Computed example of a mutant assay.
Amino acid sequence: MLAKLTKYRWQYVMVLPAIVLLFLFSYIPMAGIQVAFKNFHIGYTIWNAPWTGVENFSFLQDDQFWIVVKNTIIIAALKFVTGFPAPILLALLINEVRNSVFKRFVQSVSYLPHFFSWIVVAYILQSLLTLDGGLVNDLVRKTGGEPIFFLGSTEWFRPMIVASGLWKEVGWNTILYLAAITTIDPQLYEAAKVEGAGRLSQIRNITIPGIMPTITIVLILSMPSLITVGMDQIYPLMNPANQPVADVLDTYILRNGLQQGYFGMATAVGLLSSGLSLILVLITNQISRKINGEGLW
């Protein structure tokens, strides 16, 4: 053991800052989990607040909470079905582009929206979709249609969230798959050409199997996001008109927990959400190992 530490000492030195940050910002804050079982208010510390058992989990009997769970599951499912395969498909398409200048242009344009904050994206959507002066509704009027209140519609809110999330992140997520494609041995493609395989056959039999380990890892790591679904995206666009379909677990925690001072309840909901995320990761990792032998551990 000491010999390995000595041999790889500089590698350990490089990893040390990440370990320290992980410990400070991920493990030490776990002490706050006890707030879920305490009557915590301003003036108490997490150590001297009185214990209340499972009283903070009374939200499980709240009908509104289960509506929020339903909204979270629907939005998470829609975002996963569209958002997970889209970067893979875009990476495959970009990889087939032979003009290097055009290829770099497409890559740059596709991942540029990632650097916009969700507040900026929300402002862009409001400018485009507003009833009075919005570009989309102006086009609807010019084509003889009736203007649509997109921002206050319970029918259009979920498609709007899914489409904006796809536009903002698909290019950035593609970078990882393009990097994985570059690790595939070019001789495999040459051999496939000799055998008469076309482009689709090469993608199906070489490219996709070659990036399958990366797809598996990304799939496992994306599981926790199914529970959070992105409050920073949803909250700026949520209003009383679309709240019946827009209210998700994170916004529920913010409104009923933090804004009203019910810190114990907010922590309890967060603890339950984290537990479900952990279960999803464990199940996905196990299924992945059984199907293709690849997993995080």
Rank of each mutant, 00 (worst) to 15 (best):
L93C: 11
L166V: 13
E294P: 00
Y235K: 10
F40M: 14
A180F: 10
A191N: 13
L249K: 04
W118V: 07
F263W: 14
L166M: 15
A36Y: 01
V15N: 08
I74C: 04
L5K: 08
N256S: 12
G196P: 08
G275Y: 06
G43V: 00
K168P: 00
I46S: 07
L92N: 03
T154H: 01
T182P: 06
A246R: 05
V15M: 15
E294K: 14
V218A: 14
M212G: 01
F150A: 00
E294N: 14
G133A: 03
L188W: 11
V162P: 02
L178G: 07
A180K: 08
M265C: 08
S153C: 10
L226M: 15
L276P: 03
Y235V: 13
I253V: 01
A192P: 09
T182Y: 06
N239M: 12
L5W: 15
G134H: 02
W156T: 07
S225F: 12
G293Q: 02
W51D: 05
G275P: 02
Y44L: 02
L188K: 13
T214G: 06
I124C: 08
I279F: 14
S164A: 02
L176M: 14
V218Y: 11
F37I: 03
V269H: 04
N48R: 09
M30S: 03
Y12T: 11
S273C: 07
Y177E: 08
S110R: 01
F80M: 14
F59G: 02
E155G: 04
E294I: 13
G53D: 03
T45A: 08
I175P: 11
Y177C: 05
Q202H: 09
N239K: 11
F102H: 07
S288K: 11
L16Y: 13
G257N: 12
F23Q: 03
Q233I: 00
F105I: 15
N285S: 06
G53Y: 04
I124G: 05
S222R: 08
G293A: 02
A179D: 04
T143F: 14
A163V: 15
P17C: 00
L276H: 04
E146G: 03
P29D: 05
L131K: 13
A163T: 14
R158F: 05
D138P: 03
L2H: 01
G43K: 01
F263I: 07
K38A: 01
F149I: 04
E55M: 10
G145E: 00
Q126I: 03
R104H: 10
M265K: 15
E96C: 09
